[in-house]
Write a protein that binds this DNA or RNA. Structure first.
Lengths: 222, 222
DNA sequence: TAAAATTTTAACAAAATGTAAATTCAACGT
DNA sequence: ACGTTGAATTTACATTTTGTTAAAATTTTA
């Protein structure tokens, strides 16, 4: 489900967005109007559609309604590209069944994080739950960790770290991988940094959940 | 509810709009002044009224107020037709209970998409309410905030900001996303701007509702 | 047991946020 | 058109929270 369809009448916008999303590893399809967009949506079944609201002939709302009405396309996530907030298109968009909206002009970072959020929503990755008797819930949208229903505050890095480990319970994450994911590829921080964060996590969520695999890395087991 | 009533003293405008809307499949009624318009509104109960602001004898604002005061017509959507961007008439229009406004000269495409947006909007659809025992009601249409039923005045930005946060209670909104939604991404504002607005909001609606999630953003929790 | 790897501590650095006050800006009434 | 007013934004710090490091202590492994 890494395919994204852009429906926008403005070629520049299509290209800019496409360029950025491709760089992020998505497969990108483009359509320059509603009719073409609907056709491609049916044919390729993308995971997400970025849909311009203001288009000549058939506006985004209408496209959205048509997509929602069709069995083939009704479950595809739709994110509107709206002019700006004064406009009622946002509200109308939600009525029409949009999953989210992003204002134009679009900043790549914002778009990308919204897209991730939307795609996360149905993959279930948003809420990571360990086995039922333990009751650890990680909710990315709320940036919140619940242990036995008790909300626990985690600073950013700790949260990201835990989210990563918990994303595949039982799997070992090498230190390199952790650095890459939580800290980012360019940033150079010392090796100990991970350890310290691990320790803080253990303090907060109990010592047993995170195990160290000497020489390799860490793993999270509920 | 596909009937639209046009109230405008200018025959040409009535005809042009009428022509376009008929083509779109609406049933169109016409009236050349306020008195006639009100009469037809009561008789035919249209789904929407396009109302010229500037008319001799009885201006649109007045017509609007009368329609809003009458049980028979008070729920009819009203969209003002205003000459150029006289912000004054827009504001006055909203005060009088308008649902939207469109500037003249009217572009068919714009008008048509606005109309769709208005008709799609169900009254009350965008009242954001915190949980029932709490008492924060945000009404986007009326640009109004009620706390314990008391109306509280919020300036535009503060209102938009609160509305955004409250739109998904508990979810964290990243600063980037807030900027993009409330300010729009062309405009570059300083780093502290969000904080200051948050602070003002907290002053007005109480310190506890808006929580900051350091490194990420803010969230609203009732 | 020595070597290697990890954990812990505590001190410090860096980043993010909060605040008050000043400034800029734009709408509105006159 | 002009001044008033309130809103929006910036400024300049204060404050708080987070992140990092270096070094010592501890544990593991060979």
């Amino acid at each position: 489900m890494k395919t994204i369809l852009i429906i926008d009448d403005d070629e520049d916008i299509r290209e800019i967005i496409s360029y950025n999303l491709t760089k992020e590893g998505y497969t990108v399809l483009k359509a320059k109007n509603g009719v073409e967009g609907i056709k491609k949506a049916k044919k390729h079944n993308p995971g997400l559609i970025l849909l311009d609201v203001m288009m000549p002939e058939m506006d985004g709302i209408e496209v959205c309604e048509i997509l929602r009405a069709d069995e083939l396309t009704k479950d595809i996530k739709i994110c509107f590209l709206t002019a700006r907030s004064e406009d009622y298109s946002q509200i109308a968009g939600f009525d029409a069944g949009a999953d989210d909206y992003v204002n134009k002009p679009v900043k790549p970072k914002v778009l990308s994080s919204r897209i991730k959020a939307i795609l996360r929503r149905d993959s279930g990755a948003n809420v990571i739950e360990s086995n039922s008797n333990e009751r650890i819930v990680i909710n990315r949208d709320k940036y919140q960790l619940l242990i036995h229903g008790q909300p626990i505050h985690l600073p950013r890095k700790e949260f990201e770290l835990l989210a990563l480990l918990a994303s595949k319970p039982g799997d070992v994450f090498e230190r390199e991988v952790i650095l890459q994911t939580v800290w980012g590829s360019e940033i150079v921080v010392g090796d100990r940094t991970i350890d310290v964060h691990i320790r803080k996590l253990r303090e907060k969520i109990g010592n047993d959940s995170i195990k160290t695999v000497k020489g390799i890395g860490y793993k999270f087991t509920p």
